[in-house]
């Protein structure tokens, strides 16, 4: 009994950690792609995710009001609408706040991004109110994998949905980057933007599309978090964004599999540390592991080590 219970608890933390990690990973991809292509920390990316979550709440509420009862239909509509509008935000942010600073000193776009982050947070607070929004549960139920007396190990439908959708998106994304013209253009711009431009690649458009794709994935993460927790406010982007960026660095910034791996690790660390040690210090654990990893492997887990050129 004691042993099986321990295993059960462990597995429950694992499932929770994977769910959380999937969400972080999706946001982290946006950071890593943008960093890869323009070497910039898009500090406002967490707000993009928050915007995605707000659009999801609004759309869900509208659909409920319109009497849409089919959960799959509602999900498809919400995902489509949230991704579209959030991607438009991503595109506009790059166009307005970052593109004019493409050749500026390194810190200028970063400060502009902090400004954008403050702007978006307050914009959403002013237009949607400061109070948190809670949505009635959209997706309920789940499967009980195992139970023993009072304890039961469950996998909710939402968790399944989050994990499966993340896997599918990752697979699709890997294909886009490795097989399509856009992916090729993107990799070329990462290596050498000037050369890519000389070879006829539309660099501006490639960068814009990178922001659009990153924002789309962040919107999916926003939808997921809305479903998973059911409560959001204008401030959720900050912490999630910071953790997702940590995840991207942990995995090796610039690397897509690295972002996903980093996201999963951060999610797992958070779940296990809250479960076994202390939930107050869960973020300390995540940051400490990041620091340890970087001290041992300065370019992150899957990042290419940069060789010092003399």
């Amino acid at each position: 009994m004691g042993f099986t219970l321990a295993v059960g608890t462990f597995l429950q933390h694992l499932i929770n950690g994977l769910t959380l990690g999937a969400i972080y990973g999706l946001i982290a991809i946006g950071y890593t792609m943008v960093y890869g292509i323009i070497r910039m920390i898009n500090f406002a990316h967490g707000e993009i995710y928050m915007i995605g979550a707000f659009i999801a709440v609004t759309t869900f509420t509208l659909l409920l009001g319109a009497g849409v009862t089919s959960v799959p239909l509602a999900l498809v509509i919400v995902l489509a609408i949230s991704c579209t509008f959030t991607a438009a935000y991503g595109w506009t942010i790059e166009r307005v706040a970052y593109r004019p600073l493409r050749t500026a000193p390194k810190l200028a776009p970063f400060i502009s991004a902090i400004g954008m982050s403050i702007l978006l947070q307050n914009f959403v607070m002013l237009t949607q109110g400061a109070r948190s929004k809670s949505l009635p549960p959209v997706m309920t139920g789940g499967i009980t994998l195992w139970h023993d007396g009072d304890f039961s190990l469950g996998l909710t439908n939402i968790q399944m949905f989050i994990i499966l959708l993340t896997v599918a998106l990752m697979a699709g994304f890997t294909l886009v980057i490795n097989r399509t013209a856009l992916g090729r253009a993107q990799r070329a711009c990462e290596q050498d933007r000037t050369m890519a431009a000389l070879l006829g690649i539309n660099v501006d458009r490639t960068i814009s599309l990178t922001f659009v794709l990153g924002a789309g994935l962040a919107a999916v993460a926003g939808v997921m978090v809305t479903l998973y927790y059911g409560v959001i406010d204008f401030y959720i982007g900050f912490l999630a964004g910071m953790k997702a960026f940590t995840a991207a660095v942990l995995g090796g910034i610039g690397s897509l599999p690295g972002a996903m791996l980093g996201g999963l690790l951060i999610g797992l660390i958070e779940a296990f540390f809250s479960g076994y040690v202390s939930s107050a210090y869960k973020d300390v654990a995540a940051f400490s592991i990041l620091i340890l990893v970087l001290v041992v492997r300065p370019s992150g887990l899957l990042g290419r080590p940069d060789i010092e050129k003399v």
């Binding site: 706040a97 600073l101 702007l119 002013l126």
Partner: peptide
């Protein structure tokens, strides 16, 4: 705060 964020972006540009 909205104006503050906007001002940061504008000054940088």
């Amino acid at each position: 705060m909205l104006a503050f964020g906007l001002a940061m972006i504008l000054i940088m540009i």
